[in-house]
Design a binder for these strands. Structure first.
Lengths: 116, 116
DNA sequence: TACCTACATTGATGGCTGTCAATATTGGCG
DNA sequence: CGCCAATATTGACAGCCATCAATGTAGGTA
C-alpha cells in the first residue's frame, strides 16, 4: 500500500528559510490548479476509477465508452485532458489505444494538498 | 506528519467480492468532483495556502484581498465556494469574518485520490 | 439617529468547457 | 489496392464560471 513519503523537493536549507513558500506564487498556483482542473469532472473521475480498477494493465477506449454513457469523441476528449494533466499514460497498440494510470501521479496530486 | 492510514471503508468480505466498487457510480463521482472543482482555481489554491500559512488561528478578508490582487467581491465569492466545499470554516466576529482551514478537509480530498 | 467600515449579494459580461455530429486518420485484413 | 474498425480531430452550441461595478447589510461609533 502506498504510504506517500511526501519528501520535500530537496529544499534542505537547515537554518534560515522556515517561511518556505510565501504562500504560493501566482504562476505556481496556476500550474498546480491544472491537475485539479482535470480532476474536477465526474466523468473523468469515473474514467480514472475504471482504469485503476481494471489494473490488468491497461484499458482501451471501447471499454470506457459504454459504462460512462457518453459518445466516443467525448470520452476521447476526457482521456486527452487526463493524459495532458499527467494523470494517465497512453499506449497505442495496433488500432487500439490502451490507457493506464501514470505511476505516482495521484500521489503527487495528494502531495500538493498535503504541502498546500 | 499525516501518514494517511487509507483503511478501506469496512468492506472486509474475505471471500467473494474482490470487485469492490463497480468503479464509482455517477452520483458518487459527481459528489467527489465538487471538492476538486473548488480546488481547480489558482486563486482559491492561493487563498488556502495563505490561510494555512497564517495559522495564527484565522485570517480576515481584508488580509486576503491585497495579496491576490483581486476585487473584494471576487475574493468573497471564492471564499464562499471554499466554505461550501467544506474546505474552509467561516467565523464572524463583530464586523470581521475570520477564515480557517476545516480540519481534515484537505486530508479527505487526498484520501479520495488515494482510494479513487 | 446618523455615519463609517467590513463584508456579502446582485447583475452583467467575456471566456472557458462538456457534449455531440460529422469528418479525418491510422492500422489490419482480404 | 480497397474496405472496415478503432481513435482522434474539428466545428458548433449550450451552460457554467471568474471577474468586476454597483448595491445591500450589519456591526461599531459618535
Amino acid at each position: 500500500m502506498n504510504l506517500l513519503p511526501i519528501l520535500e523537493p530537496a529544499t534542505d536549507e537547515a537554518c534560515c528559510a522556515p517561511a518556505a513558500a510565501p504562500a504560493l506564487g501566482a504562476e505556481e498556483a496556476k500550474q498546480k490548479a491544472l491537475v485539479f482542473k482535470a480532476l474536477a469532472d465526474p466523468n473523468r473521475l469515473r474514467l480514472l476509477s475504471i482504469i485503476k480498477a481494471a489494473s490488468s494493465g491497461a484499458t482501451c477506449v471501447c471499454d470506457l465508452t459504454e459504462p460512462l454513457d457518453l459518445s466516443q469523441p467525448t470520452v476521447s476528449h476526457h482521456l486527452k485532458i487526463l493524459v495532458e494533466a499527467g494523470l494517465l499514460h497512453r499506449e497505442k497498440r495496433g488500432t487500439w489505444a490502451y490507457f493506464s494510470l501514470a505511476p505516482g501521479a495521484l500521489d503527487d496530486a495528494a502531495g500538493i494538498l498535503a504541502n498546500l
